[in-house]
Structure formats: structure tokens, C-alpha cells
Simulated assay, not measured.
Amino acid sequence: MDGPTALVPRHYVAIGGRGPEDVVTDARGRVLTGVEDGRIVRLDGLTEPFAARVEVLAETGGRPLGLELLPDDALLVCDAVHGLLRVGLRDGVVRILVDSVAGERLRFCSNVIALSDGSVCFTVSSRRYPLEHWIGDLVEHTGTGRLLRLTPGSDRPEVLLEGLQFANGLAASGDESFLVVAETGARRLTRYWLTGLKAGRSEPFAEDLPGMPDNLWRAGPEGPVWVSLAGPRVPPLDLLHRTTPTVRRGAARLAVRAPFRPTAWSGVLAYDDQGTVVHHLTLRHSRFRMVTSVCETNGHLILGSLWERGVAVCEAPVTK
């Protein structure tokens, strides 16, 4: 991987709520996100620091994370409390699509995408830890993350892949022949084949990332897969992952009780469908911490964060 170039921030926009964990854009360039108190909001005018507008579209009553816009003016929402939801953007009606898998409560639904055949694929970060104790899963290295698929007309998702290290962001290749899954706890992206001779198999897509990948986003089949990096590589954590399960469990118990403050660092990557890095942008001493999502709109990158109370607007890099 080539060395990074500078991530150039332009301004910060407060949105009246904490933790815009995922950010996605609609056809008009507006940004949708969910915040800690359960609201789904739409942000307009972000590229002008004093013209931004915040509109509440719906309330899930839980904690919305990953989002995916649908063509019929609806939104798929991964809610860490209620599961996989469908939200009407015109009427604000919230409907639960999936709240359990094979009788097990869906407790940490993370990111979701819709495919052209009508199926919905989504990730579960951990089967052991809830969102509020996410750091416990990263420390213990449980490998209980999952990739699931809900086919049209079904209310029972199938497990495509399990044993993932904190499964997080999700994106499809341009031709939908494979999915890319972010494994935050392993600092890697994993490819899961949907079609072809390798259908049903997985393999590394990108490994040894310079930070912990979180949500993924792409504008369309021709655009790159953008990868948000929630934090830089932590060498002591890499060493801890090589210890015994007993040691990791003990460390996780301490981690969930300790105060947490993210590193003053921001980073994003972008890959093409061959797994080649297209962009690698970082900013040390960043005032915007814990970048958990990134999207592009109107010539700017919009960064979301589980930690912050707003979004960051940055310069979009020149396409290579």
C-alpha cells in the first residue's frame, strides 16, 4: 500500500445529536444518518458551513447504525436494539424485518446493503457483546461476527458466513458477483463470492489495513469502495490477540469498564473491485475522532462518527 496523502478538512457541522455512525447520500446529494437517541435525520446544505439544515425523518426507538437507501423512498436500518428495520421516509413508519436468527435475538445488527435481485445482506458484529460494550468484542477477539442474507418474500435470514472478527461495513462489487465485508477486529476486508465457480466461498480482499475498518460505502457500480477507519492500528492489541482466550476475556472485562477516548486521528481508504487502493487519506492530530463512515457528495467527503455530535466535511481527492 502506498503512503497516505493528507485528508483535508473543510468544516464541521453539528447536527443536534450524538453519534452519526453511518452516513449515506440520496439522489439529491443530501446525507442521511442515525443518531444515538434513535432519530433518523436528513442533512442538506452540508457543503456550506452556515447553510446546513437538519430534518428528522423517523425515530426507531433504538439505536440506528448502518443505513441503505431503497428506490421506493424507504430506508433499511440496522438497529443495534431492534434488528433489521425498514423505514418509510415519507411517513416515518418503522417496520421490523428481522429481529432474530434461528431463535437467537439479533442484538448487534451493523451494516446492510440491498442487491438488484431484491435480496438484503447485512452483518452482525458480535453475538456476545452489545453495542455499548463493543470494545469488549475487539479486545476478546471473539470471532462471532456474521454475514446474513434475507431473500425476497422471506422473514428468515440465512447465514452466509460466520466466525468473522467484528463484522461491520458491507459493499457489493460493481457486478454483484461478490460482497466485501469489513472485519474491524482483524483489520481486513473479506470477499464473499455470490456467483461463479467460487460462489459460497470467502477469501481475503485486503489485509493488514493501516487502521480498523468500519462502515463501507460506494456511490455506484463504477465508483470505488470507500472504507472508514475508526482508529489507527494498535500494536498492543495485535499482540493481545495472539494470547489465550482466557487472557483476552480478562482483558475484555477490564476494557468495558475503563473510560474510553478515541485517538485524535482520522483515516479513510478507497478500493477498486480488484482490491487495489485508489485513495489512502489520513489526518494526524485530527479534531474529528473515530471515523465510522464516509460518503461522497457534491465534491466533498462527509465523515460520520460514533463518537462525535456532528459530521465532518472534507475535500474529496482527485480521482486517479
Results as ranks from 00 to 15, higher is better:
277 V>H: 01
252 A>P: 09
219 A>V: 08
259 P>T: 08
172 A>I: 12
171 A>R: 04
215 N>V: 00
243 T>K: 07
200 G>T: 07
177 S>R: 14
182 A>S: 14
258 A>R: 13
193 W>C: 12
229 L>G: 13
217 W>M: 04
261 R>L: 15
237 L>H: 01
284 R>L: 14
281 L>G: 02
247 V>I: 15
177 S>G: 15
175 D>A: 14
273 D>I: 13
171 A>T: 03
186 A>S: 11
250 G>S: 12
197 L>S: 15
235 P>A: 02
201 R>P: 12
250 G>N: 10
249 R>W: 15
277 V>S: 01
172 A>T: 12
195 T>I: 09
246 T>C: 04
163 G>K: 11
186 A>Y: 07
195 T>C: 11
222 E>C: 10
198 K>D: 08
242 R>N: 11
185 G>Y: 08
273 D>E: 05
283 L>R: 13
242 R>C: 12
268 V>H: 03
182 A>G: 10
267 G>A: 12
207 E>K: 07
190 T>P: 03
224 P>I: 04
184 T>M: 04
218 R>Q: 06
173 S>C: 05
238 D>W: 10
273 D>S: 13
281 L>Y: 04
273 D>K: 08
176 E>T: 01
244 T>P: 09
176 E>I: 08
230 A>N: 07
242 R>L: 14
175 D>M: 08
255 A>I: 06
205 F>R: 01
273 D>R: 09
171 A>F: 01
256 V>N: 03
202 S>E: 14
173 S>Q: 06
209 L>G: 09
187 R>Q: 09
273 D>P: 14
199 A>F: 09
165 Q>F: 13
169 G>A: 07
234 V>Y: 12
210 P>C: 00
259 P>Q: 07
